[in-house]
Design a binder for these strands. Structure first.
Lengths: 394, 394
DNA sequence: TGCTTTATGTTCTACGGCAGAACAAATCCG
DNA sequence: CGGATTTGTTCTGCCGTAGAACATAAAGCA
């Protein structure tokens, strides 16, 4: 019996590999490419590139656009774009929302439904049934005409295979999330489960399926009730050995600090989580971040912001020292609070990151689209198309 | 002009890829393989596997061993082993030693020279000249008969290309280490520079070139004057975006703690670094770890050990939360102190690592060979052979 | 002791997918 | 309107693998 070692390359894998390369080359490009462009960028001959492109066009993974007048002499090129009739479904449940979104291979949201909901302490079976219902409705529209390559579900907390082990934000434990949801989805769809912060970080790393975003190496810090995070290196999210990486909210800032619901003490989210920050500022839980920014000068509010910035600075500096990342990306409420947080945060990173003298860490705020986790889940579902297009061509 | 995108696969890359696969398959095996075994493990036919093996044997990357009586009927197999006449040179400078070591493709130290030296505050040019001298002497012996695939140099601190930016342990800054060393090496050897903890961690992840060690996912904590570290995921060291990852010694344990020479406060190495621990225990700097263990019951010594264990627990728990690693490997003096450190360290990891309920982190002590960084540097130099054997066959 | 069985290694032929050259098409420019 | 240029298509040859057939070298059995 073949062991788990890699299988030798052969003519068929040659073709598969080159189909994937051609598809990725077109997807990664800033604008349409021609067959000649593809040949140039992949180091293949025009004959080979053309043959591979023809297969991808036949399979709907690439589309040919309207031929334009060339900018100079020569036969006009046929523009090639990622296919618009293949897509994936991304779903998300978070403490405050349900979302479903269909992305096509160009990265456009062909259809979406995002609704506010207070889901803390909700019954998982009912919540996931509700998500299934709104997804079914969504797929009855124009999105239903796309060929869906797969689906993904973004949840907060620790996920293991098809089970959500623990989501403190939702108050859920040991939930067979994929089974509960799939029972309410059409067409036998079984979403792949993933952590919300990991998937949201992907939307920063990737502008569209297979196309790099502006940052390739960064620490994404997702500010919600708690704080999640994800490290991205070379455009790829570090998920860790069991998929449980990224929990920057539970990095200890002060061992003698407040007790966290995780059982530890002095965790970052006890200072910079939304609830913790508002409590320290003496503001009600529903206060929007913009109002916190507006009242930044008030003594209590300012002290809470300073404490949050200080805690972020201490915790994130340690993470950057271990991971060697040049940037921090703030998401969620932390993105909205970036202006008052940034000065002290950057000062502490500059002082505490060992390599700051040579490369000073930067802090970006990326509020992102609502339900970025759903977008990230759809991006991940499209990986199968980009990695192995041979399965999608005739 | 070709951009940096990947080049399409073709017949020639087919061959290269399969040569690499066959070589890695033999190197990864626990014992010798036959051509038939290689075919089975790589999913190729016996004809193809045999042809590829013949090329690697001709190039000296594989050796044929003595044919043994088969355990059952059938033509006896010809055993294949990694080549014994190809090797790499690994060099290391640390605060207390100079080392040179030649490894062959089976992972054996064909020749080595390790000498104690007090190099803190030494002149880099003289120290590296000295290392060059003892290396030249080493290569005049039997090791000189090996075909050297490359060389590597392990140094503590931050390295950038061929320059050592900062090594607090040595007191060196902005040292063009490769230039200084290469001037004293024979045969135009130019070692590849790397961080000591990263390279030492490789010797835990890899039992021999291309052969996995017992642990594939772990945090290596290197206890020296300071504390270095490296995260290993799937057998690969995480080096970060600029190669400066792994600085667990500068994760903050207590923001109000002692000032560190890095400019920060409350760094882990202020509690668990060798000098810091001995000072807290009221013992002279040269006290060997075994004596510290022997006096573990003394009030001052015990308090220092508890503080070190506590600091390690707080800092490493945060790192494990972010990286999702199941094990901590203690090296250097921390390996020797594992017995008194472990109970409290494991208790804190169990409490502070979010996923500990599902997978409790373990602590291993791996003292390792002296100058493990030199071995790791040689392992890395052999990567070029394993990854691209076609350059080494006729 | 000789034949059978079994497993490994070698030789030979066919095929898939790519390179490279030649040719065709579709423009712009003078 | 013909030449120049670029893109796309067609055709042929080659490389490296698969697969079958054959050869070799043993152990086991009668």
């Amino acid at each position: 019996m073949r062991t788990t070692e890699q299988t030798g390359a052969r003519q068929s894998t040659l073709r598969s590999s080159n189909l994937a390369l051609v598809l990725r080359t077109v997807c990664a490009a800033d604008g349409p490419l021609s067959r000649a462009d593809v040949a140039a960028r992949t180091g293949t001959t025009r004959a080979t590139a053309a043959r591979l492109v023809d297969e991808l066009v036949a399979g709907g993974l690439l589309d040919e656009g309207e031929r334009l007048a060339p900018p100079r002499r020569g036969r006009p090129a046929t523009p090639l774009l990622p296919g618009a009739r293949i897509g994936a479904l991304g779903l998300q449940v978070d403490a405050g929302l349900l979302a479903a979104r269909v992305l096509d291979l160009r990265g456009r949201a062909v259809a979406e439904h995002v609704e506010d909901a207070d889901l803390v302490g909700s019954d998982p079976a009912r919540t996931l049934a509700r998500l299934g219902g709104l997804t079914t409705a969504l797929l009855d529209g124009p999105a239903g005409e796309l060929r869906l390559a797969g689906a993904g579900l973004a949840l907060p907390g620790l996920v293991d295979g098809e089970v959500l082990l623990r989501a403190p934000n939702l108050g859920w434990s040991d939930v067979p999330a994929v089974d509960l949801l799939a029972a309410h989805l059409p067409g036998g769809l079984r979403p792949v489960l993933g952590n919300e912060a990991d998937l949201a970080a992907r939307t920063v790393a990737e502008a569209a399926p297979g196309r790099p975003g502006p940052l390739r190496d960064f620490l994404y810090v997702s500010g919600q009730i708690g704080i999640g995070g994800a490290a991205v290196l070379g455009g790829r999210v570090l998920t860790g050995s069991a998929g449980w990486a990224g929990e920057v909210g539970h990095v200890c800032v002060d061992p003698d600090g407040p007790t966290c619901r995780c059982g530890s003490t002095g965790c970052l989210e006890q200072y910079a989580g939304r609830h913790a920050l508002l409590a320290a500022a003496g503001l009600p839980r529903g206060t929007p971040p913009a109002e916190v920014v507006a009242r930044a000068g008030d003594a209590d509010v300012q002290r809470a912001l300073d404490a949050a910035a200080g805690a972020l600075g201490v915790a994130l500096a340690g993470v950057l020292n271990v991971l060697d990342l040049p940037a921090v990306v703030l998401g969620g409420h932390l993105a909205a609070l970036a202006e008052p947080l940034r000065p002290r945060l950057e000062e502490l990173l500059g002082r505490r990151v060992l390599s700051a003298r040579w490369r000073r860490p930067v802090v970006e705020a990326v509020p992102g689209t609502p339900a970025a986790g759903a977008t990230g889940a759809a991006l991940r579902a499209l990986d199968g198309v980009l990695d192995d297009p041979v399965r999608w061509v005739p």
